[in-house]
Design a binder for these strands. Structure first.
Length: 421
RNA sequence: GCGGGGAUCGCCUAGCUUGGUAGGGCGUGGGAUUGCUAAUCCCAUGUCAGCAAUGACUCGUGGGUUCAAAUCCCUCUCCCCGCGCCA
């Protein structure tokens, strides 16, 4: 949700944003319904004022022992008019909020403009791409050979895009989680293990309606949705709260499984564990003062980069273009890790500044002093690690000539000092 | 799952029986006054509309009754106590 003031006073900014994102949106409808809405508010307020006055008169007369029947009939009329006006207002209010909830976020001026990923900008590269003097394999072949995943039985039991992790890969997955949590705890993030299912209201705070169908699983007959990431649960954590300014920024490290329908991904990454319906993820989530959010954004990116440097995984940082970016984000960096088996960089981290967009939906405000006006704060989120993708990268990048997998130095202590799988 | 109690402003609370302008305290900020280890008093402190003056809304949610609902009736959600079931 955007600041209604911008829509009212400076619609050109919104028009530019919609064009840059190549998004089809009924802005005129939004502006019109907003106008109509304001007019109706003024009308109903006036009528209510009258009604309140009459109610007061009635109670006065009754106190004085007089008969209020003459006022009663007038009151009845006004109540009737008001009910009509209120239902009219409700309709307009629904139209307005439906549009207001689907309009995408504003775009940071540093974001490259373009229709798709071809307009993305590479910011930097880190690490040396491994050079192999033997024939290499992808993560599917290697993990089959070492008995580390069972995709066939997962397909039998749950369907495509599910997996059984097995043996040392289970331990490696847990090591990544353990190391990731220790890493963020040292940086003074509060560790959070959130609910894995949340209600509709909370989910709508974090994502836009179209995403429901594409990514979110719903629990039948319950007002519950499986989180697609702990971001959803952490964003809603402070909904409808007024946070004390001195507690900001709030930096959270969320650990949870993530559940995704992947409905729009038919045929892409069909094999293996790169794109799956369920994976573990540690997520950074920050609630910040508006003036600090750009700075916090860069910090989160730096934290994730440091993590991959420690894991010795070559990566590059990409600044997403307007056409490739999520609608909730104003600026997104992706980190793409080298995957030797595919001979390319693939997305592992997405790091976004959502400005006050989510905060407005979720009504998360702050103030420094209790007599001050409340202000919407800014929310930011970044992957630290989505484990399955890093497992792919580790398996492929660290494969050895004799068909094993070298375990990155920093993870060895979490695997009983084992050096190889 | 059953029985009982509850949800009021950032926090604590009064009001509900008997319908008629939601009051007080704490905290925080501003101001005033007096100056013996500090005290007292006043104002402000949710949301929306409005340039403003103002006005409207807000008592967990959604309905209903009524001229009028925090208050009466119904639905749902959540919390607490007891019982039951349970990894």
């Amino acid at each position: 949700m955007l600041d209604p003031k911008i829509i009212k006073e400076n619609p050109q900014i919104i028009r530019d944003m919609l064009k840059a994102r190549s998004v089809d949106f009924d802005l005129d409808g939004l502006i019109k319904s907003d106008q109509k809405r304001r007019e109706l508010i003024i009308k109903t307020d006036e009528l209510r004022k009258k009604k309140n006055q009459l109610a007061l008169d009635i109670s006065q007369k009754k106190k004085m022992g007089e008969n209020p029947s003459s006022i009663l009939s007038e009151m009845k009329n006004i109540s009737g008019d008001l009910t009509k006006l209120e239902s009219e207002q409700q309709i307009i209010e629904n139209t307005y909020s439906k549009l207001a909830l689907t309009i995408p976020n504003l775009i940071d001026e540093t974001v490259p403009i373009g229709i798709d990923q071809n307009a993305n900008k590479e910011i930097r590269k880190w690490g040396t791409i491994p050079n192999f003097d033997f024939k290499i394999y992808d993560h599917i072949d290697i993990s089959k050979d070492l008995d580390l995943v069972d995709l066939e039985r997962a397909a039998k039991v749950a369907g495509a895009r599910f997996y059984y992790l097995k043996n040392d890969l289970v331990r490696l997955n847990q090591s990544l989680i353990h190391y990731g949590l220790e890493f963020l705890a040292k940086k003074e993030y509060s560790l959070i293990q959130p609910p894995y299912m949340i209600n509709r209201e909370s989910m709508e705070g974090a994502i836009i309606a179209d995403d429901f169908e594409e990514v979110i699983y719903k629990i039948d007959e319950e007002d519950l949705y499986m989180i697609g990431t702990s971001e959803h649960a952490m964003a809603a954590m402070h909904s409808k709260e007024i946070i004390d300014g001195k507690d900001l920024p709030l930096r959270y490290a969320g650990i949870s499984p993530c559940f995704r329908k992947e409905a729009g991904a038919h045929g892409r990454d069909q094999k293996g564990i790169f794109r799956v319906h369920q994976f573990d993820k540690i997520e950074q989530f920050v609630f910040s003062r508006p003036e600090d959010s750009r700075n916090e954004h860069e910090k989160m990116l730096a934290v994730s980069e440091e993590f991959y440097q420690n894991l010795e995984i070559p990566y590059r940082v990409i600044l997403l273009s307007t056409g490739d970016m999520g609608k909730v984000s104003s600026k997104t960096y992706d980190i793409e890790a080298w995957m030797a088996g595919q001979n390319t960089y693939r997305e592992i981290v997405s790091c976004s500044n959502c400005l006050d967009y989510q905060a407005r939906r979720l009504k998360i405000r702050y103030r420094d002093k209790t007599n001050e006006d409340t202000q919407y704060l800014h929310t930011l989120n970044s992957t630290l690690i989505a484990t399955t993708r890093i497992l792919v990268s580790i398996i492929e990048n660290f494969q050895t000539k004799d068909g094993h997998i070298r375990i990155p130095q920093v993870l060895q202590r979490y695997m009983g000092n084992q050096k190889e799988i």
